[in-house]
């Protein structure tokens, strides 16, 4: 048990180090600081242009919360695609390591990173747009941030599995990340989407979690958003479960077809 936990912790740390092996300090700063700030500012200014300055916080808060997808989607998908790119995927698949631990450690570090990203986004929002959290239910907001970071990583695990058989799975990460900006009530309410897309929106992580977080910022009690959070966790668990099943399925497929070395 202790050995497994040690392997999990080692794997988690190495995942994070490997995730940013390409980055110089300046590149890391651009990715982790400049990109989130510019995303928040861009969409807030777009929203203010369209709807007036009174709605700035709606856009700022939505985009701050969505920053968790930077880790949960990009990070998780990149861990598998990087293994392929650097030729270590066959070693991973050939190792006797517990598959579930390997699979979960891929998301764990990104969940933590996602939480940090959201907190950073909220600080930026407070500084630039005067987000006032004095009336917010902070423990509940914290819970919402943890939940959306977990559920988004669950979605990332599902698409990350594609990296076992697909060379450019990071493209999928781009599509999913920016797609969430349309579908999850980040920049406009889900009710503005066509009916069919609303169904898609509610079957994705973030949608309910962002709603709950907005309520928490407004000072709602846990009971008022418990249903939303339970739904969010359920959606995340379904994606993580599907992701693990797909990982095992594609692992076998990749092994049989020698796809793990195809580049």
């Amino acid at each position: 048990m202790t050995q497994s936990l040690a392997a999990f912790a080692r794997s988690t740390w190495l995942q994070y180090v490997a995730l940013f092996q390409w980055a110089t300090p300046l590149g890391y700063f651009a990715y982790k600081v400049v990109l989130p700030v510019t995303q928040i500012v861009f969409f807030v200014q777009l929203g203010v242009f369209a709807t007036g300055p009174g709605n700035a916080l709606y856009f700022a808060l939505g985009n701050s919360l969505q920053l968790t997808a930077n880790s949960g989607i990009f990070g998780v998908i990149a861990t598998v695609s990087n293994e392929r790119q650097y030729g270590t995927l066959p070693l991973l698949l050939g190792s006797p390591a517990n598959r579930l631990l390997t699979f979960m450690s891929r998301s764990f570090v990104n969940v933590l990173d996602g939480i940090v990203s959201v907190v950073f986004g909220l600080v930026v929002t407070a500084i630039l747009y005067g987000l006032d959290l004095r009336t917010a239910n902070l423990p509940l907001l914290g819970l919402c941030i943890v939940v959306i970071s977990i559920t988004t990583a669950g979605l990332g695990l599902l698409f990350g599995s594609l990296g076992l058989v697909m060379r450019d799975s990071i493209i999928v990460a781009n599509v999913v990340y920016y797609g969430l900006l349309i579908l999850c009530g980040i920049n406009f309410p889900v009710s503005r989407l066509p009916d069919a897309l609303q169904v898609v929106a509610y079957s994705l992580p973030l949608t309910r979690g962002v709603m709950a977080a907005r309520e928490a910022v407004a000072g709602a009690a846990f009971g008022q958003v418990a249903g939303l959070l339970a739904g969010e966790l359920l959606v995340g668990a379904v994606y993580a479960g599907l992701g693990y099943a797909l990982f095992r399925l594609l692992e076998g497929w990749a092994r049989r077809g020698g796809l793990q070395e195809a580049y």
């Binding site: 651009a30 990715y31 861009f42 242009f49």
Partner: peptide, 28 residues
Amino acid sequence: SRSAFTVLNGLELGVYGLCGFMFPVSQL
């Protein structure tokens, strides 16, 4: 510079705003 692309990629959304691609720069 290998990191030039990463840095400029990080500035991508900032450029959209600074150049007024989707709203006038008077909004900035």
